[in-house]
Amino acid sequence: MWKTVAQHLLSRAPAARQADPALVKTLRERVGASALGRSLAIRVVSAGSCNGCELELRATQNLVYDLTQYGLSFTPSPRHADILLVTGVAAHNMREALAQARAAMPEPALVVAVGDCAVDGGVFKGSPAIAGGAGGVVAVDLVIAGCPPSPAQIVQGLLALVEAQAPLPALPKRREPRRAPRLPPE
């Protein structure tokens, strides 16, 4: 075990992924900056998936994608969450739980729909047992399509959301010209 750990300490880390600037711009216009900052906690709710999206979400935490390096982490409690990440269709039997999870989150909060099912029901669109995608129950800010989306696509989408949240760099304050101190009148 220690040999493997040592090998990895010596190996070079892969280059960090960058968010797509065009996506960041669009998201900034549509979602707008909030007071959330850059270190965001994610609460995942599977609302009726085939478990494919969960496999790829778990993969975002592996050594290759390492979601944590961007300040993003998964949390077990909606009370600690900044992002509600929904996978799967909004199955009728999960609607109440999904709405409750959203209601339990402190504001402001963002909602991300991951996978074609969460986007609009995917292949299950039109089934009487579902209420469409995640948007059928909660207001969605970002969709990451794919069946399932790859870990790289999920990381890219979440990164863009983080970047869009960051406040625009403030312009440097204009300095007042320095005046020579006046001597008090004699």
Binding site: S46, G48, S49, C50, N51, G52, C53, E54, L55, G88, V89, A91, H92, N93, M94, A97, G122, V123, F124, G126, S127, P128, A129, I130, C147, P148
Partner: peptide, 27 residues
């Protein structure tokens, strides 16, 4: 909780078309 009505969606489709649902019963 994850009931999606998969059996109902498969009925009435050709085998080739219905294969998409079989592929999503358990990812």
């Amino acid at each position: 909780y994850t009931h999606k009505g998969t059996l109902g969606l498969i009925r009435g489709k050709s085998p080739r078309l219905a294969a998409r649902f079989a592929a999503r019963v358990s990812g």
